[in-house]
Write a protein that binds this DNA or RNA. Structure first.
Lengths: 360, 360
DNA sequence: TTGTAGGCGTTATCAT
DNA sequence: ATGATAACGCCTACAA
């Protein structure tokens, strides 16, 4: 509970009043240390020339008082807030998590705090957030979409650095960090080829999205180089659901009974596929190898057998985005207009890799 | 890209310089409108007595200049930042998502921005964040743990309202909002009883955690009232994994072959259980009904059959926590030291509910 | 080596 | 009805 007067606003405290314990300012520290406010500032920021004894006295006074510099006042005069915002349309969805982790990796080292704004796919909300962030004078903004698409630039005051993630701005001069879906598809394809599979099918999400199309293109290019055709003669586009995975697997096996590998556009789809295979008494990876996409741990690891899957490296995407943003804030011009982060392959058992137990 | 001098700090802009477009202040608006800064403030905030014509002129000037009030300056003088922080130990995990959604539900209406801080279960990190938040003068803090346990109070300046979520503070005077796991367990139990099941088993997570114990207690109390015993004669405590669900289901069926319902401590466990049941040619819900816990949509809905599951109502927990925090900030004393949010049951097919298609 | 004063952008009080 | 001015808390020239 603990409520007491801790603010300095002239309006004073409007709540129930308790002991009036003002939060200490440089002035209080100065009085206690028997010096002036200027000296306090210098002592606490290691600036200027000060006698060691004085500095120590000030530091001690600050410590005794529990002095915390007011970041608002500091920012007001420095013009830097050490604050950035992440605007996500993702409804705090699962893709946002690794991304945020990466962002914090990069930002945490720099004492930068993060405003999290969820637009819930509502342009009104987004605009509202953009305005608020303007007013708060954030140093920079990361705009994260969950799909590869082009979106209008964030309506924000000119001059605030913005980095787009996955969904890129329609303004070609804006900078964007994104995943490598073509590369991810190719990775899966090469892995299956290396495992000796030659009849590879592909089941994925909606064709109207760019992401699944790119993944399919990556796979296709690898098959082309190997002189192979897609099992079933087509990409099975559908939905991002387990159920689609189940149904599409039936279709694929019906069209191409000799299929010996299936690359899936998501781990959810892959789970559905694996379930159908099990129902049909087909062994994974014995008869058919399966590769997923996302490396969504609980989905992929919980699968039986555990799923080999393409990890789009979202955490790294977040880290890169934040790093570039910091660069822009510092004034270092970032080169290029889009940076693509390579995907990598998480090897589990669904493609026949036998993981060696380090214990044995 | 767009980088220009937009800050007012005396240090000036250290980056590459472009057109020097200062961000407009009340002063600029005042000049353009031909009035004084005080008048601008009144006009823009609808305060004091002003001629309508003047007000309009000021508003127009502000609009023309793209004026955005500097929130830092406002906060400095008002003592309110309209900013709260959510500190989570959850590594941005999945439980944090619905929680954050609820928090934003409550906060969004009030123009309050959210700092998101992830401690990654590291007390050092937590302390560091607490200090930063102190300096930023946030109006309040929500501390969210992912498990029901007692934790030391957040080391933060006295006077900042703090609401704990799920994990409660060891200081009994601190306020906490949490889930109703006993109630959730009871809900599951009553539902299964109502479905005519009388041999109900329970498979759940580690016994050392309070959450699974409470869920088990809730189920047990319902069984007691009905004069029934737990199928298998014990709660099957284990891990939060599908694999444990698979193994435990074998054990339970071995111990009590007449089991006709299984309540699982998580949706992941439930998926494992369902898989084992399918392998054994047992129909769900025909032979055995299954109830999960979490209502983790992709897990529960992707299951075949879709999983009836207890929804711990995390979004509501977040909403309540934020609402109470706003109350505390406003000075309204919150009553009680813990508020428990009721769980509810998401009905799907794994307990025999036949969902009526609204189309037909 | 230390103190003084001005300003960051805004709001509120008190003159006018 | 409007203007001038003093805070809010801090930092940094510049003066002492």
């Amino acid at each position: 509970m603990s409520g007491s007067t801790r603010r300095a606003g002239r309006r004073g405290w409007k709540g129930w009043s308790t002991v009036s314990q003002r939060v200490p300012t440089v002035r209080d520290v100065a009085v206690r240390a028997g010096v002036s406010v200027g000296t306090v500032s210098k002592a606490l920021n290691n600036r200027g020339q000060l006698r060691e004894e004085t500095r120590a006295r000030v530091v001690a006074a600050a410590r005794d008082l529990g002095f915390r510099p007011n970041a608002l006042a500091q920012s007001l005069q420095s013009g830097r807030t050490y604050t950035v915002a992440v605007i996500t349309t993702d409804r705090f969805g699962r893709f946002g998590n690794p991304l945020m982790l990466g962002v914090e990796d990069a930002l945490g080292a720099d004492r930068v705090s993060v405003f999290l704004c969820d637009t819930r796919d509502d342009p009104i909300r987004e605009h509202h957030h953009a305005q608020t962030l303007d007013e708060r004078r954030v140093d920079g903004i990361i705009v994260a979409g969950r799909r590869k698409q082009t979106r209008p630039p964030l309506a924000v005051a000119s001059g605030v650095p913005v980095v787009y993630v996955i969904a890129q701005s329609s303004d070609p001069s804006d900078f964007c960090v994104t995943t490598d879906d073509v590369g991810g598809g190719a990775l899966a394809g090469r892995h299956l080829l290396a495992a000796g599979r030659t009849h590879i099918g592909h089941i994925t999400g909606p064709e109207r999205f760019a992401d699944p199309r790119e993944r399919a293109a990556g796979l296709q290019s690898v098959l082309d180089s190997a002189g192979l055709d897609l099992a079933g003669g087509q990409v099975f586009y559908g939905e991002w659901s387990e159920d689609w995975g189940r149904r599409a697997a039936e279709m694929l096996l019906h069209a191409a009974p000799d299929t010996d590998a299936i690359f899936c556009g998501s781990d959810q789809i892959a789970r559905g596929v694996v379930e159908t295979l099990r129902d049909r008494r087909l062994r994974v990876p014995g008869d058919i190898a399966v590769v997923g996409f996302d490396n969504w741990e609980p989905m992929a690891a919980g699968c039986r057998p555990p799923l080999t899957t393409v990890d789009p490296n979202l955490r790294e995407v977040g880290r890169v985005a934040a790093t570039r943003l910091l660069d822009m804030i510092a004034g270092t011009p970032v080169q290029g207009s889009t940076e693509t982060v390579p995907a990598w392959l998480m090897l589990r058992e669904s493609t026949g890799v036998r993981l060696v137990d380090p214990q044995s």
